[in-house]
Write a protein that binds this DNA or RNA. Structure first.
Length: 594
RNA sequence: GCCGACGUAGCACAGUGGUAGUGCAGCUGAUUCGUAAUCAGCAGGUCAGGGGUUCGAAUCCCCUCGUCGGCUCCA
């Protein structure tokens, strides 16, 4: 635990102390520090609401001012349990009810571990520590929100109230944090998406099913253009597959019934005699379709690696409570591709995929990223993971090797792999430091054999290929959600839905404005002209608010000289340009995706 | 799916038992203007939907739908 985490964890104890002052019967579970502060889970008949915060914070402040020292005490398991039974853990003294969550926690502490208690004032808690020296060291804190959480995160356990707060060493840092949150709110893709008319949702269409307005559709098309160029250069071939498939496909892939609850319910057609039904599913992933394309023709080792790419549309029945703007949807279009290769080709193919990720990060100005390399747990072979220890080891070693050699920033997480092979999730941080899980990259050695995929090797023997699933741009939905927040809606010119707006100073300039408009459109520039009778200041204001990267202002002077006056969204007035110079600059910026 | 909060015009919000309001956006007209808001007029709502309590409901109660904050899950 670092210094800040220690401080925040101590603050959680102070929160618990304050809650007990008001509701002595409260039962506490866990109260750890988290990335944004801390929380404490509490079971309490009274529903704590934000209206209670003022009162709680007042109590907390008293405790902080009292500078109560945190005292550590080592106790035996028996002693700890006995105290828990007397209700003396996470409490201000003995109570008639046992401290039941704490007792449960003690029972799950491994035999060889020391059990410690921490006391501040009258409050004693079961806690591994560490803590700050005394409560006055906590600095600045604030309670932020309440939510519910299952005990130990398990749906079968009781739901507790989770009180969230945050704490910093100084008041200034606390205020800076809330200012950052305000900034984040302004950039929220749901808010900007509405304001910039990028996408919408409609009750009659359904939750989690975004409708893309023309401006949002431009973003999608530009991303696809980028992906198509990049993938073409990297030797991918484009394929297209239907949005539905029969249940037999998913039986072969192993997704049914394993994945069934994440899929939309099946469509059952009463077609055959004897009442046997033909069943179709909306596809939740593209891999099985692509595997069928691999199987469609006899394949030789000379054909490998074979790289099938498609912006495949997938449907997943996400739980209603999980849906969140564009970040979590039920209909998504993936920047998907499957690479079929031999074991010998694996390392270089995997390396090339990683390089593609890095190329994209550079284009979008993603400076902070991390790859989470998820591996299997040997104890769960045959249950959570396909039972093939040799291939697990082999593929994991290959992936780790590539990651280490290419100097990519990664962490290894055991027990998180996909059931068919190790996977890599890509976390990126937006310009204001918000974290997103954007893309995935998985090795699959289990499903190709299920589909009986083979190629003929140089010795005329059948062999099963390895498959790499990769989606560097994730899904359109989530990636665009990320880009909106990353750029705060100020998209670079190549991506901007409206690239140039022409603003004539008066009606007399309409025809010159239209000349420029048609010249720009002839060069595939997404331009419009504001021919309203507003004054120039109002037109500029509108264009600024709509975040149009370039404004072209034309008056009598410009018309006479065949020039234009340029104003950029970010830099303001840039002065006079000849039309040709401006067009050249624009084309250059669009082409290089600057 | 679960717990909690919320849902008033395209958007941002006011209205807490007695005739639905403000600002921006929109439409019409006037204005023809040089780098972030010209003026005037008009129009726009089954107060998410349904049921109930009441002489009377945006307001109180119940159900459904949706959104938000979390939990679990994931691109």
């Amino acid at each position: 635990m670092n210094e800040l985490e220690t401080l925040r964890h101590s603050c959680a104890h102070v929160l618990a102390t304050a809650i007990l002052k008001l509701w002595p019967e409260a039962q506490f579970a866990a109260g750890p520090p988290i990335a944004t502060g801390f929380y404490y889970d509490v079971d309490l008949a009274h529903r704590i609401t934000p209206e209670d915060f003022e009162c709680l914070e007042k109590e907390m402040r008293k405790i902080v001012e009292a500078a109560q020292p945190f005292e550590r005490q080592v106790v035996s398991r028996e002693e700890a349990l006995a105290m828990g039974q007397r209700g003396a853990l996470a409490s201000l003294g003995e109570r008639s009810m046992p401290s039941r969550f704490k007792v449960d926690i003690i029972e799950h502490i491994p035999e060889n571990e020391t059990i410690t208690l921490y006391r501040n004032g009258e409050f004693t808690d079961l806690c591994a520590g560490p803590h700050v020296a005394d409560t006055s060291k906590i600095g600045a804190f604030r309670l932020t929100h309440v939510a519910s959480a299952y005990y130990k995160g398990d749906e079968k356990n009781p739901q507790l109230q989770r009180i969230y707060g945050t704490a910093f060493a100084t008041q200034e840092e606390l205020e800076a944090y809330f200012q950052m949150l305000e900034e984040a709110k302004k950039r929220d893709h749901r808010k900007l998406g509405k304001e910039l008319q990028l996408f919408t949702f409609d009750e009659d269409v359904g939750p989690g099913l975004p409708l893309w307005l023309p401006k949002g559709a431009v973003l999608i098309e530009e991303l696809e253009k980028l992906a198509k160029e990049t993938e073409f250069q990297a030797g991918y071939q484009r394929v297209r597959t239907p949005h539905i498939a029969r249940d037999t496909l998913y039986k072969t892939s192993g997704h049914l019934p394993y994945y069934a609850e994440s899929m939309f319910p099946p469509m059952e057609l009463e077609e055959k005699e004897g009442g046997e039904k033909t069943v179709y599913y909306l596809k939740a992933m593209n891999c099985p379709h692509h595997h069928k394309l691999f199987a469609a023709l006899p394949r030789s080792y000379r054909d490998l690696p074979l790289r099938f790419a498609e912006h495949g549309t997938c449907y997943r029945y996400e739980q209603s409570g999980e849906l969140m703007g564009l970040m979590r949807v039920r209909c998504m279009q993936m920047n998907d591709a499957h690479i079929y290769c031999t074991e010998e080709q694996f390392a270089s193919e995997f390396q090339a995929v990683n390089e593609m990720y890095l190329k994209y990060f550079k284009i979008f100005g993603v400076e902070r990223y991390q790859m989470r390399f998820s591996t299997h747990d040997p104890a769960k072979l045959g249950q959570k993971f396909v039972d093939d220890p040799i291939l697990w080891k082999k593929t994991e070693d290959m992936v780790r090797d590539v990651l280490v050699k290419s100097g990519i920033n990664f962490v290894e997480i055991p027990n998180e792999a996909a059931f068919y092979g190790p996977k890599i999730d890509v976390q990126v941080w937006s310009a204001i430091g918000r974290e997103f899980t954007l893309a995935t990259n998985q090795v699959d050695f289990a499903v190709p054999p299920r589909f009986g995929l083979t190629y003929t090797n140089s010795e005329n023997k059948k062999e099963t290929p390895l498959c790499i699933h990769r989606a560097p741009l994730g899904t359109h939905e989530r990636f665009i959600g990320f880009l909106i927040e990353h750029f705060a809606g100020n998209f670079p010119v190549w991506l901007a839905p409206e690239q140039v707006r022409i603003l004539p100073i008066s009606d007399k300039l309409t025809s010159y404005a239209q000349t420029i408009l048609s010249e720009l459109r002839a060069q595939d520039v997404r331009a419009t002209a504001d021919l309203s009778s507003e004054k120039i200041g109002a037109k500029i204001r509108a264009a600024q608010i709509e975040k149009v990267p370039y404004m072209v202002i034309v008056g009598n002077r410009e018309e006479a000289a065949g020039q234009l006056s340029l104003r950029s969204h970010s830099k303001g007035d840039e002065g006079s340009f000849t039309k040709e110079n401006f067009y050249h600059r624009l084309q250059e910026e669009i082409k290089t995706r600057k």
